[in-house]
Amino acid sequence: MSLKHEISFRLNGKPATLSVAAHNSTLELLREKLRLTGTKHGCGEGECGACTILVDGISVNACLMFAVDCDGREVTTIEGLRAEKGLSELQKAFVEEGAVQCGFCTPGMIAQATHLRNTCPGMNREEIRRGIEGNLCRCTGYKKIVDAISSSLEKRDS
């Protein structure tokens, strides 16, 4: 019988209290327990970035973080990154610049790009490319993802 821990945290702006097993990852908590399936499981080893989420505003691979470590944190998943009405400026840019093909890496890319926009708003293309180094995409060749992040920098969500 695995040990359970009670944790309290804010998830996409709302308070959450629940109990998790000590060995559960945050990715398991999100996808399996809470059924927030927007965050993707790509490798489970922190190598592909498909499960990127924001914890206290910083991007994290949810597969590498224990669920118990969400305790007391502000956790934001792709489900919490939409604008009040419809898509955020970043999401719109991904659509308009053609940054989405199969889309499996997209939620993680959007989370990582959100982190980059917040922490380095003046970044150039080279810095954007460096900033998404940990997020693998097999379809696009990354160029249009960089285009999207770059073009979104001038726009702020109202």
């Binding site: 998943t77 792709i78 489900e79 898509l87 999401q91 659509v95 308009e96 053609g98 989405v100 093909q101």
Partner: peptide, 22 residues
């Protein structure tokens, strides 16, 4: 330059892949 019809839902995490279907 026509944006893909499936792209908006893919950016929000709404799109359901096999892994998401239970």
């Amino acid at each position: 330059r026509v944006p893909k019809l499936d792209a908006p839902k893919k950016t929000t995490g709404e799109t359901r892949y096999l892994q998401d279907i239970e």
